[in-house]
Design a protein around this nucleic acid. Structure first.
Length: 548
DNA sequence: ATTGATGAAC
């Protein structure tokens, strides 16, 4: 009697424990339940251990390292346990550990199964390591799993991620009975590699399309820099396609950001709210960035302030700090940086880049040096962009010699953009001797870049060396450098208008130029008022050359 | 139990 009752109680306890493990929400809770499992002597008991491994390896609030520690205590892990760990690492920050665990498995003579390989292939894809991918592929063939569709689909993605579209296509062609995932993986592969003509063809030949197909195509156009095409695919999707989701909207708002299309951006925002899509942090970040890039910094702040501080991460702080910096709202930008530290978000390399950009706009040399040094103190290595920003700060603040020395003492080679910043500093602050040296260096560095000749020509023009200035035009012709026409976009009532220099095809071209001339004359007038000592004749000739 | 996607700076 007693035995039956006890075994009944234990069964109940086990059931309760299992259901508690299934409902587990946090690592703290999981550790408490794990303690119970251990105290009941069940630490080798598969159902419990499997649940513990799954939560800590796969859940969003899990901890893969904890999972691995539990795993390594097992005397005989099941294949399911092995797969859980490999899968967990494949989604982690260190996918390379998936491959270490795989090697361990092979050394112990444990046979992987058809669940193991998709995780391993994913790990190789995330590492962008084709060598790993190919060895995993070899194992797949050796163990006779090459016609598993899950495995084949993951191989397409891996090869495409590594830039090997030919092999991705080969795997795709070999699939008997391709499914939507096969098609989407192939489409996404072409789109990610910027092969938009092929991507478009694949998309059109698909009989069945889902939200991922559309999103891949849109995102491909965004990554390829064809933002208007991305927008028109989205319009078409709204008309005939499936309902857009968060990923679609992130791509679309990124396209608006690059187009500076505020009206469209606002429509996108409205669409997100109206269609009841959850405003996730990723989406909010892209909205903040979109509004900032479209010049609507107030709207950007509104979206940003709508996120509760405890939900924020470094990316959204960077978006708003950088947005304020480009709007010249330097004080606000630095204030938000302080606020970010109060909230406890650690700044990263990009944060410092935004801060340096703010300093450049505000002429804050001391602060820039402080940030540049804190970057080093926090154990981060300044990138070429950080150095470029510092040069910009110094050049704008008329510390040209310091800027020049800074460049020569850098541990890396200077970029053209960096010398360009120095050059414009030299021109603005009339250090023409240094300007000429830098201008010549720039042409040496980029002899096929039209702007570099114009840069040096501008130096001569400011110096009134008109013949030298004109000779730059000849130097360009001699070397066959073509001046590519400049163009800009203007959005009026949601319609994008493109203006190319000297292009008169726009219906309102005449009226626009009339207005521009008016504005230009006004500007000149106020410039003359501020610079009365400069002679009128000289400047008109100079304008001519500066604008060629 | 499995495969396919998205955000920040330059």
């Amino acid at each position: 009697m007693l035995g039956v009752s006890w075994s009944c109680k234990i069964t109940n306890l086990n059931q309760n424990l299992l259901s508690l493990l299934e409902k587990c929400k946090s690592m703290l809770e999981l550790k408490q339940l794990h303690a119970v499992v251990i105290s009941f002597g069940l630490s080798q008991d598969d159902p419990f251990i499997s649940k513990i491994l799954c939560f800590s390896a796969l859940s969003h609030s899990g901890d893969i390292n904890y999972s691995y520690r539990v795993f390594s205590q097992l005397s005989i892990p099941t294949i399911f346990n092995w797969n859980t760990i490999i899968r967990g690492y494949s989604n982690s920050k260190t996918p390379v550990n998936s491959l270490s665990v795989f090697l361990k498995m092979l050394r112990l003579g444990v046979a992987p199964d058809y669940f193991t390989y998709p995780f391993l292939v994913k790990a190789s894809a995330r590492l962008l390591n084709q060598e790993f991918g190919v060895s995993v592929h070899a194992h797949i063939i050796q163990t006779g799993h090459e016609s598993d569709r899950f495995i084949q689909n993951s191989l397409i993605h891996m090869y495409a991620s590594c830039g090997n579209l030919m092999w991705a296509q080969k795997v795709f062609d070999s699939i008997q009975g391709k499914n939507l995932v096969s098609w989407n993986s192939m489409l996404d592969g072409y789109a990610k590699c910027g092969e938009m003509v092929t991507a478009q063809k694949v998309f059109e030949s698909m009989l069945e399309k889902d939200v991922r197909s559309w999103s891949s195509l849109i995102n491909g156009y965004v990554k390829a820099g064809d933002y208007s095409e991305a927008m028109s695919v989205f319009e078409k999707m709204r008309a005939v396609g499936p309902k857009a989701n968060e990923v679609t909207m992130v791509s679309v708002s990124c396209a608006c950001a690059h187009l500076g299309a505020l009206e469209k951006g606002k429509m996108i925002h409205k669409y997100i709210v109206d269609s009841g899509l959850p405003l996730t942090l990723v989406l909010q970040t892209s909205l903040v960035d979109m509004y900032a890039k479209c010049g609507a910094i107030e709207e950007a702040l509104l979206v940003f302030r709508g996120v509760s501080k405890s939900q924020t991460d470094v990316l959204i702080w960077n978006a708003i700090i950088g947005g304020l910096a480009t709007h010249g709202l330097v004080e606000e930008s630095l204030k938000l940086f302080k606020e970010m530290q109060t909230v406890g978000i650690q700044p990263d390399e990009v944060t410092y880049l935004c801060l340096l950009a703010a300093c450049a706009h505000g002429g804050l040399v001391k602060e820039a040096w402080y940030f540049f040094e804190s970057l080093n103190k926090c154990g981060m290595t300044p990138t070429i962009e950080h150095y470029a920003c510092m040069v910009d700060v110094l050049a704008r603040a008329d510390q040209l010699t310091t800027a020049y020395q800074f460049i020569s003492r850098m541990p890396i080679e200077p970029t053209a953009a960096m010398l360009g910043a120095l050059l414009s500093g030299c021109i603005n602050h009339r250090n023409l001797a240094l300007a000429e040296t830098v201008g010549k260096k720039l042409i040496e560095l980029e002899p096929n870049h039209d702007g570099r000749y114009i840069g040096l020509s501008n130096v001569y023009a400011v110096d009134k060396r008109w013949d030298d200035a004109r000779s730059m035009r000849e130097a360009m012709d001699r070397r066959g450098v073509k001046k590519s026409p400049g163009f800009s976009f203007v959005e009026i009532s949601g319609v994008l208008h493109r203006f190319i220099a000297h292009d008169k095809t726009h219906p309102d071209s005449e009226e626009t130029n009339c207005m521009l001339n008016f504005v230009f004359r006004q500007m000149k007038f106020s410039w003359y008022k501020d610079n009365e000592e400069k002679s009128l004749e000289d400047t008109s000739t100079r304008d001519d050359l500066l604008l060629f």
